[in-house]
Computed example of a mutant assay.
Amino acid sequence: MLTLRYNPATLRFECCEDNVIYPLTSGTKFNLYCDDEDIVVAGRIEHHNVNGYYFIDTQGYVTYLYSGMLGTLD
């Protein structure tokens, strides 16, 4: 499972696993782990100029990203 973190130097979110960093950009396929329901939701990372980075699932639901979220790259 990858952990999201915001990098203020690049103004982007990154995934971290075992000291390997994967930068996320618009269109990156990502599977977001929802810990309250213990499920993984498929979708992609997108960016809005005002609101920043967010996750959009295959049904169109939007979740804004924050450091500490878990998931996997597709």
Rank of each mutant, 00 (worst) to 15 (best):
L2N: 13
L2D: 14
T3Y: 12
L4K: 02
Y6R: 00
Y6G: 00
Y6L: 00
P8V: 05
L11F: 06
L11A: 13
C16N: 05
E17I: 05
N19T: 10
V20S: 09
I21K: 06
I21Q: 06
T25I: 11
S26V: 04
S26I: 03
G27I: 00
G27M: 02
T28F: 11
K29V: 09
L32G: 01
L32F: 02
Y33F: 15
Y33E: 09
C34R: 11
D36C: 08
D36W: 11
D36H: 11
E37P: 02
E37N: 11
D38P: 02
D38W: 02
V40R: 04
G43D: 08
R44H: 08
R44E: 15
I45T: 07
H48N: 15
N49K: 11
V50W: 07
Y54H: 05
Y54E: 01
Y54D: 00
F55M: 09
I56H: 04
D57E: 13
T58I: 11
Q59F: 10
T63D: 09
T63P: 03
T63Q: 12
Y64A: 04
L65T: 03
Y66A: 06
S67F: 01
M69H: 00
L70N: 10
L70H: 12
G71F: 00
T72W: 08
T72K: 11
